[in-house]
Nucleic acid binder design. Structure first.
Ligand SMILES: [Mn+2]
Ligand SMILES: [Mn+2]
Ligand SMILES: [Zn+2]
Ligand SMILES: [Zn+2]
Lengths: 121, 121
DNA sequence: TCTATATATAGTAATAATTCCTATTACTAT
DNA sequence: ATAGTAATAGGAATTATTACTATATATAGA
């Protein structure tokens, strides 16, 4: 894959936040550095970066977000402020249990915990 | 909420399958019973039924599906055939762990386990 | 360094899913 | 039956994403 100034900018923007940004947010931030970048370029490169394993696409309900955190982790979704917070939990024995009980070979466990975050005591 | 023939038809269709159908699938099935039903009516009534607690909306990646199974349960997502299978697992001590560790009050745990189902030994 | 060529981009058009709008129809209580 | 309210069909509008195309850019090799 050929180097591109735009892709580097997008990558930097995504990697500098932990807010799990949307394509539109990334587009607006990247425009501050590369003013004439186009939205199509953002989408195309986000897809490329995902293919390269640099980022992950996550689906927050019907909202598509991007995540640079490559460690396996889960998310807390606050239904008051909408924040999506990274957490390290346990997929412990889920793989084995599911394999035995349902004959289903597990590749990945995606868990989102919905509730209220500490900001809204 | 006033009775409607269309809503009853939609509800029946959704309740008679365990395939977690999309709005479009539901629309096409309902048309067989109510030929001149409109897609807007399907969307409007699916939303109504969800508000009434009759069904749940589930997000399978970027695909929106509907689920009549009101028991708390998780899903196995087969990446070969695309099937979404209901499973009963354990949200056991997740609530307490998350509350203690992250001061996050849990309402709901959504888990999707991605892998390969028994049909593709 | 220069050039040829493959690849990436900007800008715009197209697509798809969902919601909105409005005139018409159906139900319910008087 | 009538009036008032609620729901519908059909189509337009909206939104997120992808496709297209002419131009620009990165880079391999002379
Ligand atoms: Mn994350
Ligand atoms: Mn289900
Ligand atoms: Zn919050
Ligand atoms: Zn399968």
């Amino acid at each position: 894959m050929r180097y591109s100034h735009q892709r580097e900018g997008i990558k930097k923007i995504v990697q500098c936040t932990n807010c799990h940004p949307t394509a539109d947010w990334i587009f607006n931030q990247t425009k501050k550095i590369i003013p004439n970048i186009s939205l199509g370029t953002v989408y195309r490169n986000l897809k490329r970066l995902e293919e390269e394993g640099e980022i992950n696409t996550i689906y927050d309900g019907n909202i598509v977000r991007y995540d640079w955190n490559k460690d396996p982790h889960d998310h807390l979704k606050c239904k008051v402020c909408g924040d999506l917070i990274d957490v390290q939990l346990f997929d412990d024995n889920i793989r084995e249990t599911v394999l035995k009980k349902y004959k289903f070979k597990v590749d990945d466990v995606e868990m989102t915990i919905i509730g209220t975050c500490h900001k809204h005591t």
